[in-house]
C-alpha cells in the first residue's frame, strides 16, 4: 500500500513536471498557435462539432418545435427493427459503395498505370481527358443521353441501328435505373485518387525497374506488383480514403439523375433516407441516427481498408 502511494506521488510529480514542460513549450511556441487559430476555429465548428451534435441528437426525439427529448437507443432500435425502407436504403447504399468504391479505385489505378507508359506530352493530354469528367458537373447532359424518347442519344442510336425498335425508359424503368446511375457515377469517379496515382507513378524511381529486371522480374504485371505498387503505397492509401469517402455519399448524383424518390425506391440510399426524415418528416433525431450510422460506416471501412492495403506487395 505504502509503495503504491509512493509510486502514485512519484507519478504525480512526474505528471506535473510533464505538464509544466508542456506549458513551457506552449508558451515558447505561443506565436505558432496564432497561425493555426483561424483554421482550427472553423475546422472545429464545421467538422468536429457536427459529429458531436449528430451523436447527441441521435439519442433524442427532436422535431424542431419542441425541445429535444432524451430517448436513449430508441432511434437506432427503430432503424433496424421497424423501418423497412431503411433496410432497403441500407442495402442499396452498401451495393453502390461496394461497386463504386473498389470500382472507381481500380479504374483510377488501371488508367493511371496505362497513362504512365506514355510520353510526357501524351500523358498530359490523356490525364486531362480522363480527369475532365469528374470536374464537370455533367448530370444534365446524361439526362439527355438517357432521355426516354427517341431524341435521347442512346435511344436514338439503338433505334437507328435497329438494335431496339422501341424507346427504352432508361431512368424510369426499375431494371435500368441502378445500372444507369452506376455507369454515370463510375464515369465521373476518376477523381482525386486518379490524380494521386498519376503523380505517384511518375515518382517511382526508374532505377528500381532496372534492378528488378536483373533480379528476374519478367513482365509488366510482376513489375507492377513487386516494384511499383509497394513503392507508391502511401499514394494507394490516400487514394483509398478518397474513394471510400466518395462511395458512401452518392445520393445527390442519383437524385439529379432519376429524381427523388426513384421508381420503387430502387436507388434509395441512406443519404436520401436521412434527407427525407430531416426535410419532410421533421424527425431530426431519427435523421441524426442515420447520419451517425453513415459516419461510422465510412470511418470503419476506411480503417479496415487501410489495414488491408498495408499488405500490398508482401
Amino acid at each position: 500500500m505504502a509503495v503504491s502511494k509512493e509510486a502514485k506521488a512519484k507519478n504525480k510529480a512526474f505528471f506535473s513536471d510533464w505538464l509544466k514542460y508542456q506549458f513551457k513549450e506552449m508558451r515558447k511556441n505561443g506565436g505558432l498557435y496564432l497561425f493555426m487559430l483561424p483554421y482550427l476555429l472553423i475546422f472545429v465548428t464545421f467538422t468536429v462539432l457536427p459529429v458531436i451534435v449528430a451523436i447527441y441528437f441521435s439519442f433524442t426525439y427532436f422535431n424542431v418545435l419542441e425541445p429535444p427529448q432524451w430517448t436513449g437507443f430508441e432511434n437506432y432500435i427503430r432503424l433496424f427493427t421497424a423501418d423497412d425502407l431503411f433496410m432497403t436504403a441500407f442495402k442499396n447504399t452498401m451495393f453502390f459503395a461496394v461497386i463504386i468504391g473498389p470500382g472507381g479505385y481500380l479504374l483510377s489505378l488501371f488508367f493511371a498505370w496505362l497513362i504512365n507508359e506514355l510520353s510526357r506530352r501524351a500523358r498530359v493530354i490523356m490525364t486531362i481527358f480522363y480527369y475532365a469528367p469528374s470536374l464537370a458537373s455533367a448530370l444534365p447532359i446524361w439526362k439527355i443521353i438517357f432521355s426516354s424518347d427517341q431524341y435521347g442519344l442512346l435511344n436514338g442510336f439503338l433505334m437507328n441501328t435497329g438494335i431496339t425498335y422501341t424507346n427504352i425508359k432508361w431512368l424510369e424503368d426499375v431494371n435500368y435505373i441502378v445500372p444507369c446511375c452506376l455507369f454515370v457515377i463510375l464515369w465521373g469517379s476518376l477523381g482525386t485518387s486518379f490524380l494521386t496515382f498519376i503523380a505517384g507513378l511518375q515518382n517511382v524511381d526508374r532505377t528500381l525497374y532496372e534492378a528488378g529486371a536483373i533480379d528476374g522480374v519478367k513482365n509488366r504485371w510482376q513489375e507492377l506488383w513487386y516494384i511499383t505498387l509497394p513503392y507508391m503505397k502511401p499514394q494507394l492509401m490516400f487514394g483509398a480514403v478518397m474513394s471510400i469517402t466518395g462511395a458512401f455519399s452518392v445520393g445527390g448524383a442519383i437524385t439529379n439523375l432519376v429524381g427523388y424518390p426513384s421508381q420503387d425506391y430502387v436507388a434509395h440510399t441512406l443519404i436520401h433516407h436521412m434527407e427525407d426524415y430531416a426535410n419532410q418528416r421533421m424527425e431530426l433525431g431519427y435523421a441524426c441516427a442515420i447520419t451517425v450510422l453513415l459516419f461510422l460506416l465510412q470511418l470503419v471501412t476506411n480503417k479496415i481498408i487501410k489495414r488491408l492495403l498495408s499488405k500490398v506487395g508482401e
Partner: peptide, 27 residues
C-alpha cells in the same frame, strides 16, 4: 510543439468522412 500530433491526426480522420453526410447537424 505540444498538440501537433493530435491536430494532424484529427485532420487525417476528417478526410475519412465527408460533409454531405453531416448535412443535417451542419444545418
Amino acid at each position: 510543439f505540444p498538440g501537433r500530433k493530435m491536430i494532424s491526426g484529427m485532420i487525417v480522420t476528417a478526410l475519412m468522412f465527408n460533409g454531405t453526410v453531416l448535412w443535417l447537424p451542419l444545418f
